[in-house]
Amino acid sequence: MLSIKNLHACVEEKQILNGLNLEIKAGEVHAIMGPNGSGKSTLSQVLAGNEAFDVTKGEVTFNGDNLLDLATEERAREGIFLAFQYPVEIPGVSNLQFLRTSVNAMRKHHGIEEMNAAEFMKLAKEVSKQVDLDPAFLKRGVNEGFSGGEKKRNEVMQALLLQPKLAILDETDSGLDIDALKVVADGVNALRAPDRSILMITHYQRLLDHIVPDYVHVLSEGKIIKSGGPELALELEAKGYGWLGIEDQVAANHE
């Protein structure tokens, strides 16, 4: 599904990714862990096509196509979904309108008839219940005045609505209490399917108790330095990043 070879990327001339390699097959769930500043979020932004990041070397193919040739919106329509770490507000634009515009853009691209307002309302209400969001939130502005937890649940809800081929979750667990984490994890687990891959980016192991990945990778200084199964995350949790010779100042300060 996704193949990343020797990926180098920078932002504002600062090199962040330094030769990253990763293969994700259909149906697999991968977790990328690493300290702050290791390049986790950069990887997700580069895959989704944020133009603030420059790819300087390497290649990325998605279902055989050169992903780096596609514009952001084209990647989205081909099935790449990014759940944002810090979803931005769009004042005055209702969630309902935003989501319907998005769903219809995808449908149009795939030659499926667009949904009318009534049909979409019904679907959106159902899906919002899945992530424990009051359907009234559909009428509010996009992320406007949402709590941290509501924003994250909203992101997962969008993944459920759009049914992507590859869902990238950028620290979807951060800032959630344990109940909200459970709801978000249930939503992500509902996404798991043989034809869908999931790439989870996280700082902490606790998310992986709820969403058990097939593979865990450790990212440091823009490269994957160790890969393994779910047990790698537990080992990391027990021994800390220092175990792999990585300095994790932020984590050290927090813990």
């Binding site: 133009e51 919106e73 989205a76 990014l82 931005v88 005055g92 998005s102 853009a105 759009l162």
Partner: peptide, 29 residues
Amino acid sequence: SDEQMFLCRQRGIEPEQAVSMIVNGFCKE
């Protein structure tokens, strides 16, 4: 903002449609 545009485009929305949606939201009142 670039972030708003990126969010819209990441959800498959054409840039021009995104701008128009954001502006319409701004004018809602």
